[in-house]
Design a protein around this nucleic acid. Structure first.
Length: 170
DNA sequence: CCCTGATTCGC
DNA sequence: GCGAATCAGG
């Protein structure tokens, strides 16, 4: 994989946004984090606030737009009353529920998920789900999780909010 | 052990 | 110029 103008531009952008080298490498694909770091230095983009190595990164200001209508799968409660094949049938027969998902509040720092698949999760990757489990875009956050939480710092906060107040990020 | 960026150096 | 290996650190 070579450093095309497009890829360099994306690298510049993501680096400026504060993503770590490994995250950028994941997004670009085809390159290691070392390659990213090497390129960053050659481009003289180094230095980004913190002088020496730091750990927590990721800085992405939420778009802050009007609420968006999103299609989600049928509510699970539809099937909880029954058991077995009948329940499954009920789930698939149910009409999709359309409801509103709030965008993150402005100024809230939203991390960019690594979007790992189920089998890529480890004991220390964030297990916050992204997308619809019934569609191909479904994945898990995958960022480093807390020591006593199955979620990364950001999603742990969401997880402990009432469901009615949760705000969904990517 | 997980992760981070910095540096070196053979290619 | 590139990036794996290595280093130093949280």
């Amino acid at each position: 994989m070579n450093w095309t103008d497009e890829r360099v531009e994306l690298l510049r952008k993501l680096w400026a946004e504060g993503l770590s080298a490994s995250q950028i490498a994941t997004q670009l694909g085809g390159v290691s984090r070392n390659a990213v770091i090497g390129k960053v230095h050659r481009l003289k983009l180094s230095g980004r606030g913190r002088a020496t190595a730091a750990q927590p990164r990721a800085k992405k200001v939420a778009p802050a737009a009007a609420p968006v209508k999103v299609q989600t799968r049928p509510a699970a409660r539809t099937i909880t009353a029954t058991v077995g094949a009948t329940a499954l049938a009920a789930q698939f027969d149910a009409e999709p529920v359309v409801h509103q998902v709030l965008r993150p509040i402005e100024d809230v720092v939203v991390p960019i998920s690594r979007n790992l698949s189920l089998i890529e999760l480890t004991e220390r990757t964030c297990k916050w789900p992204n997308g619809d489990p019934l569609h191909d875009d479904f994945s898990f956050c995958g960022n480093q999780s807390g020591e006593s939480s199955p979620y990364c710092g950001y999603h742990a906060k969401l997880a402990y909010q009432p469901a009615s107040e949760r705000r969904r990020a990517r």
